[in-house]
Amino acid sequence: MTPLIVTGTDTGVGKSVVSAGLTAALGAQYWKPVQSGLEDETDSELVARLTGVTPLPETYRLPLPASPHLSAEDAGVEIDLDALSLPKVDGALVVEGAGGVMVPLNRKHFYLDLFARWQAPIVLVARTQLGTINHTTLSLMALRGAGCNVIGVIFNGAAEPEVEETIAQMANVTHLGRLAPLSELTPGALAEGVKAIDMTTIRAAL
């Protein structure tokens, strides 16, 4: 089965929660190639807590909570795209990026360059808040311009039907559903929320 890439329009848009939901729904393994910031619960730890899945080890674990390229420089290393080949696993694999599409991995390459190299289907996670039309449309333009295969957009947040419809229509992108705000971040609550996501379309793309 083809790996599924989860990226976002920005940091803090809910990529890790969506990734956890998709990991559970697909019965997949999970991989976060680059983790920046180790003091709080990491994205891999969050996914493990919400799914019971043991994530694949991160290739780069960087202490400073910052853009990967700055966190790597602080640690005295440089992120090498050749070290970030997609792992070969049995079954599905959910791969989560960091921040947004144009987050730098080093002084020469963005995450976008890695996505273009991987050529795996992509789900874009977007907020429903003010500004999301601009951020989502620009992210889609960048991904498509690099030749990436975008399955569609998963929205995260309170319902904004007109905003969501505008993005789907004007950006000509599939609306894959919306993860509503969760009263508590538990496996059960997440499983219930993911029922609103179009898993049929996602599975068909893998």
Rank of each mutant, 00 (worst) to 15 (best):
V6W: 09
T7S: 08
G8N: 05
D10L: 01
D10M: 03
T11F: 03
V13P: 01
G14L: 09
K15M: 05
K15Y: 06
K15D: 01
S16I: 10
V17Y: 00
V18D: 05
S19H: 09
A20H: 05
A20K: 06
G21A: 10
G21M: 10
L22G: 03
L22R: 08
T23C: 14
T23V: 12
A24W: 01
A24D: 12
A25I: 03
A25G: 08
A28E: 08
Q29F: 03
Q29W: 05
Y30I: 07
P33K: 12
S36Q: 04
S36E: 04
G37R: 11
L38P: 02
E39G: 04
E39Y: 13
D40Y: 11
T42C: 06
D43R: 12
E45T: 13
E45F: 09
L46T: 15
L46I: 13
L46E: 07
A48E: 14
L50Q: 09
L50A: 12
L50I: 11
T51D: 04
G52C: 12
G52P: 06
V53G: 01
T54M: 11
T54R: 15
T54L: 13
L56K: 05
P57L: 08
R61V: 10
R61C: 06
L62T: 01
P63D: 06
L64S: 04
P65D: 08
S67W: 00
P68R: 06
H69N: 14
H69C: 04
L70I: 14
S71I: 10
S71P: 04
A72K: 07
E73Q: 14
E73R: 15
D74K: 14
D74S: 15
D74T: 13
A75E: 09
E78T: 15
E78W: 03
E78G: 07
I79G: 00
I79H: 00
D80K: 12
L81T: 05
D82G: 12
D82Q: 11
D82C: 01
D82M: 02
A83P: 00
A83R: 15
L84P: 03
L84K: 02
S85D: 14
S85N: 13
L86K: 04
K88N: 08
K88D: 10
K88W: 00
D90F: 03
D90N: 11
A92Y: 15
V94T: 10
V94M: 09
